[in-house]
Design a protein around this nucleic acid. Structure first.
Lengths: 153, 153
DNA sequence: TGCAAATGGTTACATATGTAACTATAACGT
DNA sequence: ACGTTATAGTTACATATGTAACCATTTGCA
């Protein structure tokens, strides 16, 4: 029977990565787990994707943005935003009109239905975030914020 | 001209999320940025995806795993692993044979070519991780590890 | 003016990913 | 031994995402 789970003989020479201690890998797992947990709350119920929800969240805060501005604020690329908007407008959650002085730009805002959905989803999202952060004490929370700031800056 | 960038009038009642302070969102951006930076180092050069690289990294450490065991160790689902393996075997980077006592199982290991590539990519990945962590001081690094442990546990 | 370059946005294509159904083999209980 | 159930892995389909090419409009400047 073949040897199993035994480190490869050549380990020392080859210095393989230890994925479970490798920051990019750990972040990726953590991020996916958390985002998916939150998305599970609303994806089925409202038939909406994470990217669409992000667009709505931005429009809830900043009324009248153009698609490009939405892209900036969500860190999505313009194609992804265009697609999300197509679905959101189709579903009657976002209103799209044309900018007065520039016919290329759209002017975007949530519809009444969009607001209704937003007001149901936003508290759920916040609650999930609290659940995650509940695993940390106040000091750890503060460090986390600080660390994220430094890593992203 | 339409008002722009002004918070929506109904902000108070609707309590929109502030994406830039929302943990799941921040993690997602950070994780994607870092993973993509590393992937840029090898994707073009070796024509390999992040998932394929992860499979190779695991096989570099644990010789003779089955596909299911690879899936466990990479936190990928079995379909993703199956697809990654198909490409890796095709490209001559991974060797697949059948388990002695169980014809369902595969027995996987890196080929010589797989090792060569591994030995070029692994140091680059580690170097990128160091670049990221260089933004933090020793204390912050220690907290980050501790926080990730708690969030994932 | 008027024409090249830039910008906002969409479309088209290729590739990636998730879910469910499927095949083959093995394990289990009678 | 034998039918049921579980497991390893692949295939098929639908959906998502990234890249490049594209149209329309606007800007900059000769």
């Amino acid at each position: 029977m073949t040897a199993k789970r035994k480190p490869a003989p050549a380990t020392a020479e080859h210095a393989p990565l230890q994925l479970e201690h490798f920051l990019p890998y750990r972040l990726s797992i953590l991020s996916n787990t958390i985002s998916q947990t939150i998305a599970d709350d609303y994806q089925r119920r409202y038939d909406i994707s994470v990217t669409e929800w992000r667009v709505m969240a931005v429009l809830a805060r900043f009324d009248g943005l153009s698609a490009r501005e939405v892209a900036e604020r969500t860190a999505m690329d313009k194609v992804a935003v265009s697609r999300a908007l197509a679905r959101l407008v189709e579903a009657g959650r976002v209103n799209r009109s044309i900018h007065d002085g520039d016919k290329r730009r759209s002017v975007l805002s949530l519809t009444e239905a969009g607001w209704v959905m937003h007001d149901e989803v936003a508290p759920m999202a916040r609650a999930r975030e609290r659940e995650v952060l509940a695993k940390l004490d106040a000091e750890e929370c503060a460090w986390l914020t600080r660390i994220l700031d430094k890593l992203q800056g």
